[in-house]
Design a protein around this nucleic acid. Structure first.
Lengths: 266, 266
DNA sequence: CGTAGCCTTGACCGCCCTCAAATTATGTGG
DNA sequence: CCACATAATTTGAGGGCGGTCAAGGCTACG
């Protein structure tokens, strides 16, 4: 798994052998198993350590005074959780597991050491947090401007693309260990409406999502209903289904030609 | 102005004399005046340079295929525009002026040099982008979960606090050179509804916003209608109006005791 | 086999959008 | 300094997307 992380970081900056070794050493601690709904970092507390997520899903979230939860990012295997939080003195959000997960710690002091000695590695890590920020901005577009259908489609496009890049898809399907309620919290919708939207998406033969298992029937259709342009993910990977000009590319929405996504699985 | 920037960066990491000097030199270029609605960075293009904003307002924004604009951040004097964009190969958003501005450039090569030689400065810059990200997350809460009234109040709380920290307020008032349409694009509302909301806020004697001039009549009330907790801004400055326990601090919303905001001006 | 969490469906309602038009600033050339 | 054009603000009427409340069915797991 650490190889996946290094490969991803090297897209952001070339790493020397020393830097790779240092990163390996920093993440070579014991593997911890954690249950579902367990907080790695809690809002308002000083950050403990960062964590490399090996298995399972986690999320960055906030809880509002009235108890509603907003999920601000999904974290998938290969992601470093709480890297940003770890660089600040006080965290303004929580990071928690969704289902059971496996992680390995990346101690805060080690991280500070790394950033003091290795400028290229630092740049790579910085850039990876910038991509997270770009994703957050895209989510802001999602909750602010898109209809429930487009919004949900967009989330599925993003997750499927990221899981594909991480090698966690098989064909046009993948495991997505989240409940409809987790989706609702990420989409700023109610579970009731997420359910209706999922029904509608199945009716349109875009996707089916059952038993925490996602099948994409028509990625092109999904993409165009979402207005999904994957550039912000900075994946640079071959897209899940080949190549096709991204749909809905009107004024200003930019997408590089190399990472467009295709119309139809099978 | 550069002193303001350095002071802010020093809250994130202690800077050596060398680092401060290098930063001064990097931003000592000629002052440029730019008109309103001028793009500094354009969505999809490789980033040119970063810019230190000296006077006037700018914003980070995206334009959706249907022409709607989402403003994702307001940039005020003392902010470094496009720092994040400059660290990535391709920008996924635009940065444009709102009214006329004065800026000074920070060339990309200089920025790369700085980050290669000065780890503390790099950390400070990194952290400043992390605070931007935290602000983006807060905006996501805004557009996703708050009513038009709370949403607008939240934006005013944030802007007033930031302007206060930058020394750009006078008493309970400040210049806010944005139109209702600019507010609408930031709040994911229509101008029509922003107008109605501003009316309502004046009726409640919270604020008046006329002729690009904001007067805060009741910051405490504004804060509590917004559910505003300023921790995410990492200002560490004395709050605009003194001290008071933040309102609406229910489950999970954390705020440090040092940066709460007060009930009433005068 | 029982229980708790998760999913599904229906009826009703409210916040904010849409469309349209009037009124008031802002700015520019004469 | 005024005439005019353009931008910005204000107000009204009506409609739709998604929320709320409520109840029933399904699935997983001990």
């Amino acid at each position: 798994m650490i190889d996946t992380v290094i490969r991803r970081l090297e897209r952001f900056a070339p790493l020397s052998a020393d830097e790779k070794l240092a990163l390996r050493n920093a993440t070579s601690g014991p593997v911890q198993r954690l249950p579902a709904h367990h907080d790695l970092v809690r809002q308002g507390e000083p950050p403990g350590a960062a964590h490399l997520l090996l298995l399972g899903f986690a999320c960055r979230y906030c809880v509002l005074p009235d108890g509603r939860r907003q999920i601000m990012a999904y974290l998938i295997p290969g992601d470093i959780c709480a890297l940003g939080a770890c660089m600040l003195e006080r965290t303004d959000h929580s990071i928690g597991t969704i289902g059971p997960v496996e992680i390995t710690q990346l101690a805060r002091e080690r991280l500070v050491e790394l950033t003091e000695h290795f400028p290229q590695l630092t740049r790579a890590l910085w850039r990876s947090t910038l991509v997270e920020e770009a994703t957050t901005r895209e989510w802001m577009l999602n909750v602010g401007h898109r209809t429930a259908l487009a919004r949900t489609a967009h989330l599925f496009c993003e997750l499927f693309s990221r899981l594909h890049a991480a090698g966690l898809t098989s064909g046009n399907a993948c495991e997505l260990p989240v409940t409809q309620s987790d989706l609702a919290d990420a989409l700023a919708l109610t579970t009731v409406h997420v359910n209706r939207t999922l029904m509608e998406m199945r009716r349109r033969n875009l996707i089916t999502f059952r038993h925490r298992h996602l099948t994409v029937h028509d990625f092109g259709g999904l993409q165009s209903t979402a207005g999904f342009a994957p550039g912000y993910l900075h994946l640079n990977d071959p897209s899940p289904f080949g190549a096709e000009p991204p749909a809905h590319e009107g004024a200003g929405r930019a997408a590089s030609a190399t990472d467009s996504l295709p119309a139809r699985a099978h």
